[in-house]
Computed example of a mutant assay.
Amino acid sequence: MGKKPPDKSHTNSGGNIMVAVKYSLEDFVQEMEELLKSEPNQEKIFDNGSSYLARLVGNPDAIPVRFRQPVGEGRRANHGSWLLHHNPDSGLLVTSVVWGPGDHAAPHDHRTWGMIGVMDNLLTETRFRRVDDHSKDDWAQLEQDRSATVKPGEVSLLIPEVDEIHQMDNFTDRPTVEVHVYGHDLRGLERVRYDLETGAIKQMITDKYDNC
């Protein structure tokens, strides 16, 4: 599930190692928008986009400090979901998601392609596949596929209807910061959450982000 960023350090003519140029959020957005403008297939989005995202999460300073912290109040004070960029024309959505200590998200789907890069700390991601015949609208049987501890600089891919159902857990004692990238604004997008114990399917709709 993880992909490491390339080493961007290089040497000058004298053989001395030079510090790599910092990659900014603006750089990432520009490259992603240019990529999507070329009308790429999903494979190209993932191949190129995951490389861009790995560079972005390799530079924590690219995201303002306030978007790298839990919201600190309300129903999900231990969590943070911050909008960084959305273009209704291309569909590109970029958010910063912060998982406080002990934070948990039950298995859910996405209904759009996605890429998730860890910027700081660790997060345990568990993937599931649906193994029932899809004949019921309110029930599903999930089978665990794999689980991994995702580290800073690593990128996970979400492939609609193929490999997109996951559970997220922060088992550490400090916040984990991620950058999420999707091909569609999650606000208003009809998705579902799965109950592993009962098999129940519940509708899930994101109505807003913590900064808008």
Rank of each mutant, 00 (worst) to 15 (best):
E39N: 14
K37M: 09
Q30N: 15
I45Y: 13
K44H: 08
V19G: 10
R55T: 10
M18T: 08
A54D: 05
E34M: 15
S50G: 09
M18A: 08
I63Y: 00
H10T: 00
S24M: 06
E26F: 02
P60N: 06
V29Q: 12
N12V: 00
R55Y: 10
D61T: 14
L56E: 07
K44N: 11
G15L: 06
H10C: 01
F28R: 07
K22S: 08
N59Y: 08
I17R: 06
N12A: 06
E39Q: 14
N41D: 15
A20V: 02
E26Y: 05
Q42K: 12
I63T: 01
I63D: 05
E39Y: 12
E39K: 15
R55V: 08
L36E: 07
D47W: 04
S50Y: 05
S38P: 11
N48F: 08
A20D: 02
E39C: 13
N12S: 05
N59R: 07
G49Q: 02
N16R: 11
T11Q: 12
G58M: 01
V57G: 04
Y52C: 01
E33Y: 10
V19R: 12
K37N: 12
G15T: 09
K22I: 04
L25T: 05
Y52V: 02
N12K: 03
M32Y: 14
Y23P: 11
E34S: 15
K44D: 14
F46N: 07
L36H: 08
E31N: 08
N41A: 12
D61V: 13
K22G: 01
H10F: 05
V29F: 11
P60M: 06
G15Q: 06
K22P: 03
V21D: 08
G15P: 00
L56D: 04
Y52D: 03
Y52W: 02
F46V: 14
E43W: 07
L36W: 04
N12R: 07
E26R: 10
P40F: 00
I63W: 02
G49I: 01
S51R: 14
Y23N: 00
K22M: 05
Y52T: 01
N16Y: 06
G15V: 04
D47T: 04
S24C: 06
F28Y: 10
K37W: 04
G49Y: 01
N48Q: 12
A62G: 04
E34F: 10
S13I: 07
S24A: 12
V29A: 15
V19P: 00
S50K: 15
S51C: 14
A54W: 02
D27N: 07
N59S: 12
M18V: 07
E31L: 06
V19H: 10
M32P: 05
S38Y: 05
K22L: 09
D61F: 06
E39D: 12
V57C: 00
Q42G: 11
N48K: 14
V29E: 09
L56M: 07
V29G: 11
I17N: 04
R55F: 06
S51A: 11
A62V: 03
I17M: 10
V19I: 13
S51N: 14
Y52K: 01
I63N: 02
L56R: 09
G49T: 04
S13V: 03
E43D: 08
S50M: 13
S24K: 07
S38R: 10
E34R: 15
D61H: 10
D27H: 01
D61A: 15
P40G: 03
L56I: 04
D27W: 03
L25M: 09
N48W: 04
M18N: 06
V57M: 06
E31K: 11
T11S: 11
F28G: 05
L35P: 01
L53M: 03
